[in-house]
């Protein structure tokens, strides 16, 4: 096995960033974002990027960083409502956006990573999403064809990983990360904890190491978008 472990996010990305690249970036909202790898991608200076990510981060955080520096040419996302800079660039015609239904986006990435070039789904039939796409009937129901997605580089965030690239994800920080790990020609992962070989129970590996080319341990800020809490009964409010 070649060495997959890198010391810094910058070193882990080195040699894989280029102008016009397609990047997948894991996360839902700000949860499960490869924060340090996004910063490394910004610092690489690569431009005209097509970014595939469920959301576009917020101003100054996540993919919002790459929007500020105008490194993103096009986004493929399901929802982008939390980012003012995104809105400004989009309304000014400086940024292209392709909206995908969230489940279609997830399945396109899964399919891409699994070597499936296209599939049929009923999601979006009869809506603008279906325009220009082939349709077909199965058992009397109508479906539209969607295509698989792959990326030059997938940036993934995991909880724990070992030097072989085996990964475990934490709670809802899993989201798009496992599929993106499969769909990257090169997949680079940042983990909260890099553990010794054998420390992860092989029964509970979420992403097997074959999908991972590079791995780096990095401290994440883990910003919270909406901090909602409740008060203990009897506690002073």
């Amino acid at each position: 096995m070649g060495n997959k472990v890198f010391k810094t996010a910058k070193a882990a990305l080195d040699g894989f960033a280029f102008d016009g690249m397609t990047v997948m970036s894991g996360g839902f909202g700000l949860c499960g974002l490869p924060e340090n790898l996004i910063v490394a991608l910004r610092d690489s200076g690569a431009k005209d990027i097509t970014a595939i990510s469920n959301n576009a981060g917020v101003d100054g955080f996540g993919l919002g960083l790459l929007l500020e520096t105008r490194q993103i040419k096009k986004m493929i996302s399901s929802y982008v409502g939390e980012n003012d800079e995104f809105e400004r660039q989009y309304l000014a015609g400086e940024l292209e956006i392709e909206f995908n239904p969230q489940g279609t986006l997830a399945e396109r990435i899964r399919a891409g990573g699994a070597g499936i070039p296209g599939f049929y789904t009923k999601t979006g039939f009869g809506t603008v999403i279906a325009e220009g796409k082939p349709t077909r009937e199965f058992n009397g129901e109508s479906f539209i064809m969607e295509t698989g997605l792959v990326a030059d580089v997938a940036l993934v965030k995991a909880w724990r990983g070992d030097p072989y690239g085996n990964l475990q994800f934490s709670k809802t920080a899993r989201n798009f990360n496992p599929m993106m790990a499969m769909a990257g020609k090169v997949t680079i992962v940042e983990v909260d904890e890099l553990v010794e070989p054998g420390a992860l129970d092989a029964n509970f590996i979420h992403t097997p190491g074959i999908f991972v080319q590079r791995i780096v341990e990095a401290k994440c800020e883990k910003r919270i978008e909406q901090r909602t809490t409740r008060t203990r009964e009897g506690a002073p409010s």
Partner: peptide, 14 residues
């Protein structure tokens, strides 16, 4: 400004 459909299209389809 269109923010996107999120998971709504999948939910109503399935």
């Amino acid at each position: 400004m269109v923010k996107g459909m999120g998971g709504a299209m999948d939910l109503v389809a399935g």
